[in-house]
Amino acid sequence: MKEFRIQPIKNGTVIDHIDSGKALKVIKIMGIDENVTSVVSVIMHVPSSKKDFKDIVKVEDRELNPKELKKIALIAPNATINIIRDYEVAKKTKVKPPEKVSGIVRCANPNCITNARTSMETFEPVEPEFTVESTKPLRLRCVYCERELENPEEHLI
């Protein structure tokens, strides 16, 4: 099952072992939209040796920044990141599910202090912060209002 009928990429990033069904979320995190300028391959629901099924995302001429990495670790805690240079895997890393999540997810509680706007429409000078109660399923708790965040994936900043 190594043949996916998708061309290998010359330079770029292959994100492998994404939880099945989450590839489109990864694409969104990377900001890939209708203005895309490089080749992007999305492979969903392929049999995997590690798990039953997985998704893969390949993006030409693009590497991930640390914030994107953090977000991907959150929604796809088993993902591996392969940096491809000249058709070779130059670097392979496994994402690390974080213990604390800061600045990448917003609290869903509208009355949380992190969502408060002053009368001048400014926010409090803090980043939303969460403790990770479990990664599978992903459960986050706001450090400020102490509420559990339901569907954290829907609240990525």
Binding site: C112, T114, E124, V143, Y144, C145
Partner: peptide, 9 residues
């Protein structure tokens, strides 16, 4: 304070 989390902040 009327908002949750204000004291932690």
């Amino acid at each position: 304070h009327p908002r949750e989390g204000a004291a932690r902040l």
